Computed example of a mutant assay.
Amino acid sequence: MKFEDIKSKIKNLQLIGEGWRGEVYRGYLDNQELAFKVASEEQFIPNIQKEAQILQIINKYGIGGKLVLAGEDFIAYEFIHGQPLKKVINKENAKTLISQLLKQARVLDKLGINKEEMHRPYTNVLIDDNLKVYLIDFERSKFSKNLQNVTQLIQFIIGEGSKYLPEFDKEKLIEAAKVYKKNKTEENFQKILDILHIRD
């Protein structure tokens, strides 16, 4: 099943985003509000299919948009009513948001999925009205042994993210990240949370 096969059945279909790998639409299928990500060219179909595979896995852990349909050249997931992290994050909510991001990054590390873009979460994280964090855009993700989700996110925390968070010891965090990179245990992850004063 291709996107063209169901396009006529989608109500209020509108283009809401374009990238060089695909287009994102919003619309209603069987009275369900969905986002449709469609490969822009045939060469990008494997990226869309891989994203479907990854969403099926991570959805079990409450991560990502909930996959509803996976076609040959598209995926459809529940539309997320949210805003980009950059528009939402402030000194009052940063600890809540970054705590969720770190814990989701930790799950991805444990699952062996490298998202590739955790050092710049402004571009691929949505926040809903309840301050729930949604990771989006997994087409660049890959199954890997070289997992960098938590350590990439720490790059963001030490840089841009630090201006929103209560004061913490950056040197200690850098050292803790190095230790975690070598040995990704729960104990070493907990040390990262402790330095950031985040309770599990």
Score class of each variant (00 low, 15 high):
136 I>S: 00
44 F>G: 02
129 D>W: 15
91 K>C: 08
69 L>Y: 09
38 V>W: 06
125 V>H: 04
108 L>R: 02
110 K>I: 05
45 I>N: 02
87 K>L: 13
109 D>Y: 05
116 E>H: 11
118 M>L: 11
72 E>A: 15
95 K>S: 15
58 I>G: 05
91 K>Q: 06
94 A>L: 05
56 Q>M: 15
133 V>C: 04
120 R>K: 12
75 I>V: 09
78 E>V: 15
132 K>I: 10
80 I>G: 08
129 D>P: 10
123 T>E: 12
83 Q>T: 13
73 D>L: 00
58 I>R: 04
93 N>F: 09
108 L>Y: 02
105 A>F: 02
69 L>A: 06
81 H>S: 13
85 L>M: 10
67 L>V: 02
60 K>G: 09
71 G>M: 07
109 D>E: 09
79 F>R: 12
123 T>I: 10
41 E>I: 07
78 E>A: 14
135 L>S: 08
80 I>P: 08
53 Q>V: 08
92 E>G: 11
81 H>G: 13
97 L>R: 06
128 D>K: 11
122 Y>K: 08
107 V>T: 04
114 N>A: 09
62 G>I: 13
93 N>S: 08
47 N>T: 14
78 E>W: 10
85 L>P: 00
74 F>T: 04
100 Q>I: 11
99 S>W: 15
133 V>W: 07
91 K>D: 03
44 F>Q: 00
116 E>W: 06
51 E>F: 10
88 V>E: 05
69 L>H: 09
64 G>D: 11
122 Y>V: 07
74 F>E: 00
137 D>N: 03
72 E>L: 13
67 L>C: 08
133 V>I: 12
83 Q>W: 13
40 S>Q: 15
70 A>C: 12
126 L>I: 09
85 L>S: 06
61 Y>D: 03
117 E>D: 14
64 G>P: 12
117 E>N: 09
46 P>Y: 13
55 L>Y: 10
53 Q>H: 13
137 D>R: 03
130 N>T: 15
57 I>M: 10
127 I>S: 01
118 M>T: 09
41 E>P: 00
99 S>Y: 14
122 Y>E: 11
53 Q>T: 13
138 F>W: 06
125 V>M: 10
133 V>P: 02
102 L>D: 01
38 V>Y: 02
69 L>W: 10
63 I>W: 05
115 K>V: 10
124 N>V: 00
122 Y>W: 12
83 Q>G: 12
138 F>G: 00
41 E>G: 01
124 N>M: 10
53 Q>R: 15
52 A>F: 07
72 E>K: 12
128 D>Q: 10
97 L>C: 01
123 T>K: 14
63 I>K: 05
47 N>M: 15
128 D>S: 03
56 Q>H: 14
73 D>G: 06
